[in-house]
Amino acid sequence: MMTLEEALQTLSDYRTDEVVVTTMSGNLIWPGVSQSDADLIFTAPMGGVPGTATGIALARPDVPVWAINGDGSAAMYLSYFINIPAAAPKNLIYFLMNNSEWGLIGHVNLPGAGRVDFSGIARSSGWDSVHSVGSLPDLKALLPRIVKAPGPIFVNLEVEKAMELQAGTAEYARRMGAPKAARSYGKSGIANVRAYLAGMALPAK
């Protein structure tokens, strides 16, 4: 098993030119490990990350896009498991941080915690490329094989329960108040991603 921090740090290490859309517990960790400004973070609407990432990927098929979602958010809108292979953005990878809990409210188990097979849901919903990893060595072995492969690709990452990142705590406030987090959040994140995309002009048809 790996921690959420280790998993996100590893994704950041292998990231090159991807736009990243993320949320929830990841939004407190990702700004600290990300080396790029092409990040969009939001917590509302909860569950919307895969959809927004899909929209960006469809609009800009020349730019790789990663959705980094939590399992609580994924459970809220299981419909994306159907929507994404139907829309079929080839430049999208969906990483699911799966720890069977709602982390931001303080380690509360999700309904069906530990019994839900998100990879199985993805396979039965039409995803052709589905991966599940439970350790850092497995993640490090997988990433070089998939980052430039045609998508959409779904990766279920089994991670340990998040460290104490409960909303309302001093640590939560410190992380949310960090400059990189503020730059990546909501409207600011949208502006940054737009600026990044503008610098990567679409190839002429």
Binding site: G48, P50, G51, T52, T54, G55, I56, Y77, A86, L197
Partner: peptide
Amino acid sequence: MTVVSVCHEADAVSVAAGLHIGGATN
């Protein structure tokens, strides 16, 4: 026109938001 059919209306708004961020009028 590219039609993107989704399963839930909130999904439609999230996808449309991403399209807009990516510069695609929808």
